[in-house]
Simulated assay, not measured.
Amino acid sequence: MSRIVTSLAAFTALTAAAAAADLPRRAPPPVFTPVPVFTWTGAYFGINAGYITTTKDTVFTAGVLPANNGVINGNRPAALPLPQDGFTGGGQIGYNYQLTPGAGVVVGLEADAAYTDLNRSRGFIGTNRGISVFRQSTDYLGTVRGRLGYAFDRTLVYATGGFAYGDVSYRGLYESAAGVPTFYGARTRTETGWTAGGGIEYALPTDSFLNFFKSSAVTVKAEGLYYDLGRRSVVLAGLPGVGVGSYVSRFQNEGVLGRVGLNYKFGSY
C-alpha cells in the first residue's frame, strides 16, 4: 500500500512540474523613460539679418550771426530730410531663464552688434544758387537688452528693451553758386540711446540639420526693434577768406529694424 501512495505522489509531482513548464513566462515590466520637458533656460549665441530704416532723419539748420542769413532768405535749407535704409546683419549672445519648464515666464539678457547700410547724401540749391550738401551714415548698431516673455513649450513670445549705441558720421558743406566751399563741418562719434521692441522665437528639434554645433537646441526668431540714438548738433564754420561766422545743423538718429535670427542654445534640454 505504501508503494502505491509513493508512486501516486511522484506521478502528481511530475505532472505539476510538466504543467508549470508549459505556462507562459511572465515578462519583466517595461522600463519607463520620461520624455524631458523642454526649457528655454541656458546660454546661446547666433546670427541675424534684416532691414533697417530711419523714421526721424531731418537736418535742421540755423545761422549763428545776423550775417548768416542764408536760411532766412532761402539760400540754405532750414529743414532737409535725409532718409536712410538698407541691410543690417550681425550676431548676438544671451542667456534665458525659464521659471517653470514647459510653459511659463522666461526672463533673459541679450547683447548684439550689427553692420548697418545706413548712409545718405543729399544736396540743395538755394534761391541765390548756393549749393548745400549734407551726409549722414551709421556704420553699426548695437544693443544690450533685457527680455521678458512667455513660453508655450517650444514657442516663446517676448518683449525686449534696453540700451542702444551706434557709430554715426555727420557732414555738412556749403558752396557758392560757383562751387567754391564757404562753410564746412563734420563729426563722427559713438551715439548712445535706447531701444524697444518684441519678437517670437521657436525651438527646432535637437536633431535638426541646422544643429552644426551639437547644441541642446537650435532656435529661429523674428523680431522688430525701434531705436533712438538722440540728436547731434554740428557746427558748419566759415572757411578762411570766404565765410564769416557759422551755421549749426542738428541731425536726428531714430529708426526701426526688422530681422530674423538663428540661435544655438546650450545648457538645459
Results as ranks from 00 to 15, higher is better:
A103Q: 15
V244H: 06
N253L: 03
S208C: 04
T138G: 10
N75T: 15
I125L: 10
G241M: 10
N48A: 09
P24E: 01
T143A: 04
P81T: 01
W40R: 09
G90T: 11
T39C: 10
G258P: 02
S169E: 05
G161L: 06
T188L: 01
R129I: 00
M1S: 14
F134E: 02
L236Y: 08
L82Y: 00
G166W: 01
A49P: 06
R187H: 10
R231L: 04
R259G: 06
L210V: 04
L204N: 01
I4V: 12
Y115C: 00
F266D: 08
A111L: 08
A21V: 09
P101S: 10
Y97D: 07
L257M: 14
Y184S: 14
F251D: 05
R154I: 00
P34R: 05
S137F: 05
G224E: 13
N263C: 05
P83Q: 02
L141R: 05
V256W: 15
G162V: 03
F60P: 04
R171T: 11
I47A: 12
T41P: 10
V31I: 15
P30N: 12
T54V: 03
A18P: 04
G142R: 08
V242S: 13
R120E: 13
Q136E: 12
T190G: 01
D153V: 00
F152T: 05
L225P: 04
A9T: 07
F251Y: 15
V244K: 06
P83V: 02
V133K: 08
A62T: 15
G108T: 05
T6S: 12
R25M: 13
Y202W: 12
V144Y: 09
G185K: 00
T219H: 00
V168F: 03
N73L: 08
S249A: 07
L236H: 06
E110G: 11
L118Q: 11
V157S: 01
R122A: 06
A21G: 09
E201R: 13
V157G: 03
F45N: 05
Y44G: 03
R189C: 02
V59Q: 09
D112F: 02
G50L: 07
R232M: 14
V157D: 01
L80S: 00
N253P: 09
Y227K: 15
